[in-house]
Design a protein around this nucleic acid. Structure first.
Lengths: 218, 218, 218, 218
DNA sequence: TATGAATGAGCTTTCATTCAT
DNA sequence: CATGAATGAAAGCTCATTCAT
């Protein structure tokens, strides 16, 4: 949609190349982890010369960092569209739960990249100011919603928004991240449409049952 | 059965060597993932010749599989000590939640290895009959507890034991597995004694609040 | 076609590097066989980085195959210069015998490489279309010569050109290929100028005595 | 033939083991050459412990030497059964040719081992007194036959028995040793019964045509 | 005699990275 | 902006060989 002035045709190619590299790298890192990722393979994915990757991103580690930053920026961007504050507290909580679930489901690479980042003890994150700046405003928003819900006499008191957020995320994350081992061990396909719907319903039950006063149904 | 001078720290003990290798490999894989692990480093850890690792385990992949099998065997063994069936249903659920939390906390390598296994799509698991045989009886036990709780008029009906198990695990797993990124982003140390206790309390609240009729307090 | 400052010994010349590697590899394989050849040694011979060998030739086996292809191409090229059809039949046969002898003598690596290829049951050859395309036209030429010689009343009839070719080659090949064991066993140096000349004379006697009518002398 | 007293059953096991190792080693060396042969594989072939091979044969090279010695001893033994001196000269020559052909055909490992020995410049042979002692008496016998044939007015004069022997061997050897490359290049199966018979006939024609006065037929 | 355990050296191959254009 | 050529370091794995019993 972005209009392209009739400039010299090759303008913006640099940026385009960088974006393409980031996408390819993201997929490679997600599929193989940091140690298993191959620069060669990334180059092949983008159909660009390997040297160019170094030209733009300096090293494999830096490239991974760039991918992480981009990944965080993406989810923060998506979170912004939630407008939780416009909703009644119970709906807001449900909305957040659904969003988290849907986002993880739609972005398996997000889960894998996070795992990889944690495997390496988030050493990459520590180096990135940009990511810390991307510090999610979600916790604050969530705190406000919980307060509002309590004021409305709907929510129980004393809920730590960070704990709640981690719980919502954890309920979704573990199911999806460990789908392969879980499937292997329990001999049940966890990724059918039905199974996925059931999981989301269960999550909502759990979370809303917890925040709502005396487990009241919505 | 030939008696062996008592306890001389035996070299040339095949079984001991293999066990030592497994321990060292487990730590290496947990720390660096599959791609990042180094056979040389494992050999150094055990103070045994690298060649011996191949002598006993054939290849890096096979070694990883052996580590996985051992890891699963370990947790299954620990689960066996739980005797959940001897407890009243609410206590059983609490006990399971605490156990899960404590085990993950005490065995960070378990989490990392599972992540690695899932990164590789559990391809290793698929190859191992032994692991599938180690299929956790926990789900069945949990089902029985839920039924008993319901019969006692304590638990709500219709809870899928698998969903519940995955939720308990997920609540613990995500917090610990992603501690580094979470800490970096929220600027809060999640691993202090206090924070850990708070997390466990939150988990119990959530899980018990869910299973108990009208969120009744225990 | 961009002119290049004349003859500066070019580095970064892909083709030159590949050719140099082929030469070095040929010598290494000829001296040590496939199993005994060392990639390190080949790299040292060319004074190029070992990695480059893999960059261009993928694997040791593929490199050996490339060497074989080149070796066959070389002898086919040499055969082309023979112009046997321009000669009278008896001279043509003599010429071919001499050529075979001289070529084997001048290219001991050819013999060794062929032995190696056969040790591995020509598995490499089977994979190479290029070599099968290099199918020697010599047999056909030889057939024509034999026919011509017979028509001239000089040669006996019914000679299979393939058998004859194999015989010529075998007479030369065995003497040279097995020179070391033969020398050791018979205690006679087979590689003196005199011995070599005697061998060629003997070969010509044998072959010509066979093809010519009533062993007639040329 | 050696009678076996009813001694303790396990006696002679040592010798039996050594013989078994030699056989297995011979096959392994023949199949893979010296560099490609694996001690492990030899041990597996004999179903004996690897250590035992070293116990009896000291090293891979020494083992190869032992195999060579045995191989030469075998063919010398076979040659002894020929009794060429009892035959009329032409029959003797034919007999030798047939024997050479049949022996090579029946003992492909002989050819391969000789190639390997020569690849390594017969360094092994040089070290072996035993082999030099096994110096074939064939050349002398052949010389006598040629002399006898000449005296009988059947054979031409001035034939070098060594040259003749090498020729007979070469005609057989090359065809069999290079069967794989020849087949690949000429697209003709050289190992059918028919092809083999044709080869032997051709060889006899060539050799007898050479030794006999004016190519006279036998 | 026979064997399983163990090893050091070295092999092929891989990989992130840089050079030269 | 873009690329093919080249490399040093190290990885996984192999092999002949020795140790201890």
């Amino acid at each position: 949609m972005k209009e392209k002035e009739t400039q010299k045709p090759r303008l913006r190619d640099a940026d385009r190349s960088q974006q393409a590299i980031l996408i390819a790298a993201r997929d490679e890192f997600a599929q193989h982890g940091l140690g298993g990722a191959r620069i060669d393979r990334i180059a092949e994915r983008v159909k660009l010369n390997k040297r160019l990757i170094y030209y733009y991103f300096t090293s494999k580690d830096d490239l991974f960092l760039a991918v992480l930053e981009r990944t965080y920026a993406d989810i923060r961007e998506a979170e912004k569209q939630l407008h939780l504050s416009d909703l009644a507290p119970p709906q807001a909580i449900r909305r957040l739960t659904e969003f988290t679930w849907d986002y993880y489901l739609a972005h398996p690479e997000f889960i894998s990249l996070l795992n990889t980042a944690n495997l390496h003890q988030a050493g990459h994150l520590a180096k990135s100011e940009r990511i810390r700046e991307l510090n999610s405003p979600l916790i604050q928003t969530l705190g406000e919603i919980l307060a509002r819900g309590h004021a409305d006499g709907l929510f129980r008191s004393g809920i730590d928004p960070l704990q709640l957020y981690v719980s919502i995320a954890g309920l979704a994350y573990f199911y999806l991240s460990n789908q392969h081992t879980l499937s292997a061990i329990f001999g049940r396909d966890l990724m059918t449409r039905q199974a996925l719907d059931a999981r989301l319903a269960h999550m909502c039950d759990l979370i809303l049952g917890y925040v709502l006063m005396d487990g009241g149904v919505l």
